[in-house]
C-alpha cells in the first residue's frame, strides 16, 4: 500500500495550490509507468481517505497508466512492451532495450471556476 504515501503527497500539493488560488479543486490527473505498480483502486481509496474533511473531499482523481515502451535492436521499431509476450511486433525479435519507465507525476489540477 505505498498508495497511501503517494495519495498523501498528491493531497498536500493540491491543498497548497487550492490555498494559493483560493479555489475549490474538482479534478486531478496522476500518471505513472507500469513499473511503479500503482493500483488504481487502492490509490483512489487512499486519496478519498486522506481528503476527507478537506476542500479536496469529493473531487475526482484520474489515474493514467503509461505502458512500457521498448526499442527493437535489429529493426529499431519502438513498441509498447507486453511482458507476457516480450517480442517486437514487427520482426518478432526478443532482443530489445526497455525505455525508462514513466515517472509518477501529478500532471494537472482543475479548479472550480469562480462565478
Amino acid at each position: 500500500m505505498h498508495e497511501t504515501v503517494v495519495a498523501e503527497n498528491v493531497l498536500r500539493t493540491i491543498l497548497e495550490h487550492a490555498e494559493k488560488l483560493k479555489a475549490r479543486p474538482v479534478r486531478a490527473l496522476v500518471s505513472c509507468g507500469q513499473f511503479n505498480a500503482l493500483n488504481e483502486e487502492a490509490m483512489k481509496f487512499a486519496f478519498e481517505t486522506a481528503a476527507a474533511g478537506t476542500v479536496c473531499q469529493g473531487m475526482l482523481l484520474q489515474i493514467r497508466q503509461i505502458p512500457l515502451r521498448a526499442v527493437c535492436r535489429p529493426c529499431r521499431t519502438v513498441f509498447e512492451l507486453n511482458l507476457m509476450t516480450p517480442l517486437c511486433p514487427q520482426c518478432r525479435s526478443e532482443d530489445f532495450d526497455i525505455e525508462p519507465d514513466a515517472p509518477l507525476l501529478l500532471e494537472e489540477i482543475e479548479f472550480e471556476d469562480k462565478q
Binding site: 503517494v6 503527497n9 495550490h17 488560488l21 509518477l104 501529478l106 500532471e107 472550480e112
Partner: peptide, 13 residues
C-alpha cells in the same frame, strides 16, 4: 481553471 504541473509526486522523498 486548469493548472498544469507535471510535478514528481515523490519529490520530497
Amino acid at each position: 481553471m486548469k493548472v498544469s504541473l507535471n510535478q514528481k509526486i515523490l519529490s520530497r522523498n
